[in-house]
Design a protein around this nucleic acid. Structure first.
Lengths: 232, 232
DNA sequence: CTGGTTTTTAAATAGTATTTTTTTCTGTAA
DNA sequence: TTACAGAAAAAAATACTATTTAAAAACCAG
């Protein structure tokens, strides 16, 4: 049996099961046995075991012989996994996690901006500028502007030269897609081009402190905005 | 065939293959085919495929039909995965990654300390104090002091109340084990108890700014120390 | 450049091994 | 005779093996 979406069967099951778990579908009934899952999804045991292994690698479940497979408590879920975070953000009643995510960005991105100013990786800084230019060029087209906004922020992570920051790219890309849409929805809010530009200018000048503060300014604004959305 | 170490066969293979990949063992020869791996490790195809699936979930390899399995470029490896980071830190010539890791801590931990001061989660703050007390009590015993030091830092992440910070626990625990040993080795250096205590006091008082600065002080010191080790 | 061949992973199928819980049995002491 | 402790057996679930078929992509012959 082939999956409908072009992805492999195992990855299709991974997504289906992952979403079910974060929405609490197995909270009461407990997680099914391998055999039950195979029947339910019409997949072979081999494929099902691969999917289960990947879910347990993400911290969502754990399996033990004779005891079966159990959903792990939420605090063991790997929020830093892009899939896990997306599943969580897509489910209903996910307001809190948007705020917590914004708090984490507030720790990461100003530090990355400061490092980028020190690091002076010219090609990487050029892609920050490209992101900003795309934001300006597509100001009227929400989808393209969203993508450009994300590119801008991710390019700063790259320019920091620190692979730990750069590694957050898939996480941030994924989450910003949902996060920016949320803030734009309520207030008719649009990204502040000037604020973004002032980060870039500081990085280009090699002024780490100013870059840090400019990044902080945008993110504090973002945290406040999400707080407002939640109140509404 | 059962594994020697009590871990499951798939997890044993995961570790063996993961370490081989980060030390560059397959750089020249290319990654073996499933069949070759099965022969080499005497495992069944199913188990081998589970291990390969987990490695690809960590970004180290990718598989495509007919093309075989390939080692991904380093920038695709998931450094935020505790296993991947440990494998990288344990291999020779890993100095750079220690510095980069310290830079990331410098972004995260002061922010977590500030949030902890605002959050005032009493039980969590109590465990920070327990960590500090253990550092004092076991000052003469390197192993216990190391563990206490780690407990202290991790407890701050917990006290922040932000699950993204808390999620870094396995990563930080793993990496600090190797990192603190590195800094202690060279200089005959010991953890600075007073500096640690000043973070705790600020958190207890609810003074976010002071907590942030105290945490920064320790980590800047740590970054410098690692820089010195590299010079040596 | 086209169509078949080959290679390699993807998936399915069936069965064995192992572990751990639960139940049942049994022997002994009150 | 009953109660209980401990041992033995059964059962349930995952862990693992072995093999086969399918599909995709590269390769090669014509």
């Amino acid at each position: 049996m082939r999956s409908e979406l072009g992805v492999s069967l195992a990855y299709g099951l991974l997504a289906t099961l992952g979403q079910s778990i974060v929405t609490g579908e197995f909270d009461k009934t407990g997680f099914p046995t391998e055999a039950e899952l195979c029947v339910k999804f019409g997949a072979s045991r081999t494929v099902m075991r691969e999917a289960v292994k990947m879910l347990s690698a993400k911290g969502l479940i754990s399996s033990r012989q004779r005891q079966g497979t159990r959903v792990e408590p939420v605090e063991n879920w790997n929020l830093l996994d892009p899939d896990v975070l997306r599943w969580l953000m897509e489910r209903p009643y996910s307001n809190k996690i948007f705020l917590e995510f914004a708090q984490m960005r507030l720790a990461i991105e100003p530090a990355a901006a400061a490092l980028a100013a020190e690091n002076q990786d010219r090609p990487a800084i050029a892609s920050i500028r490209e992101g900003l230019q795309a934001m300006i060029d597509h100001a009227g087209q929400p989808d393209l502007a969203l993508k450009a906004d994300i590119d801008f922020h991710v390019a700063i992570l790259k320019a920091s030269g620190n692979p730990f920051f750069w590694r957050l790219k898939p996480l941030i890309t994924n989450a910003l897609n949902l996060s920016i849409q949320l803030t734009n929805k309520i207030a008719g809010h649009m990204a502040d081009i000037q604020a973004h530009e002032s980060i870039l200018v500081a990085i280009e000048k090699g002024d780490a402190d100013t870059a840090r503060r400019a990044s902080e300014a945008i993110l504090v604004e973002s945290v406040n905005l999400i707080g407002k959305v939640q109140a509404a």
